[in-house]
């Protein structure tokens, strides 16, 4: 997916706010790409544009399969909130994405059931969201998005609300899953450690108007082990560069 000079402003009362300005971004096939930025840097605006919920004022977004055509329903999207439906059980919630694509209810459910073990939800197929832990809820939400089988999946701060321990295990799990299935992942976070640990490329965004101010290749070997990676010298060197750039911003 390639993003060429995308800008988007919106109206806040009488004034016009530039949320994203002239953003260029390449998301190569099969890579794990992360956008890091402070809050209110236009990350959400960018994601809305990527998944076709909103149109840019200028610039273009291209995907290999669609060209510049409609993006709606073409890119997997997992929002910050898990947005599980309290009236559906785990399998039913995981099937929502497929059902939206027109897959029959029974068929969608049975496909979802086939992934329960891989997503650590075995034995909870019939549980309701209110009965699940935060980590499990996120896995259900992730399964819902991944089941749609998109080549590009955008994850918006998926682990933001989890406690540190759950978070670490979810990160390891996600890497594992991604290495098995090799879809393209666009990950958004404000956690620098998380970004470097997971990604092939990290893009740093500036505060509003959002712009990519630094792009880093993370050439740490895979598979990565959290305890080893985050204490290694190359990791710390990359982290130092990101922090330095962040500190430079007004």
């Amino acid at each position: 997916m390639s993003v060429r000079g995308v800008s988007r402003s919106y109206r806040d009362g009488s004034r016009s706010v530039l949320a994203v300005e002239g953003t260029h971004l390449d998301i190569p096939e099969g890579k794990f790409v992360t956008i890091v930025g402070p809050s209110a840097c236009g990350k959400s605006t960018l994601l809305n544009l990527f998944c076709g919920l909103d149109q840019p004022d200028s610039g273009s977004i291209e995907t290999p399969s669609q060209g510049t055509g409609a993006l709606l329903g073409r890119i997997g999207y997992m929002p910050q909130q898990d947005l599980l439906m309290p009236w559906r059980d785990v399998a039913g919630n995981a099937a929502v994405g497929l059902e939206c694509l027109g897959v029959g209810r029974q068929e969608a459910r049975s496909r979802a059931l086939g992934h329960m073990r891989r997503f650590g939800l075995e034995g909870f197929e019939g549980s309701f969201p209110g009965q699940l832990s935060g980590g499990m809820r996120q896995r259900v939400a992730m399964l819902r998005t991944f089941l749609c089988g998109r080549r590009i999946n955008m994850l918006d701060e998926p682990f933001g609300k989890l406690d540190a321990l759950t978070r670490a295990s979810m990160q390891a799990w996600l890497l594992d899953y991604w290495q098995e299935y090799r879809c393209t992942i666009l990950f958004v976070t404000h956690d620098i450690d998380e970004a470097l640990f997971l990604s092939d490329v990290v893009h740093l965004m500036s505060p509003r108007p959002g712009r990519i101010v630094l792009s880093l290749e993370v050439d740490l070997p895979r598979p990565r082990k959290y305890s080893e990676v985050v204490t290694s010298a190359p990791f710390n060197a990359l982290k130092a560069r990101l922090l330095e750039q962040l500190g430079r911003q007004p």
């Binding site: 919920l53 329903g73 999207y77 929002p79 929502v96 059902e99």
Partner: peptide
């Protein structure tokens, strides 16, 4: 109904009727 849920379902490509049936009505 939570507008975020509607946004998510639109990103999945759901029709307005599907959103009504699957999200708005049960909620």
């Amino acid at each position: 109904v939570n507008p975020e849920l509607i946004r998510l379902m639109r990103s999945f490509g759901a029709s307005p009727w599907a959103i009504m049936r699957m999200a708005s009505f049960p909620s």
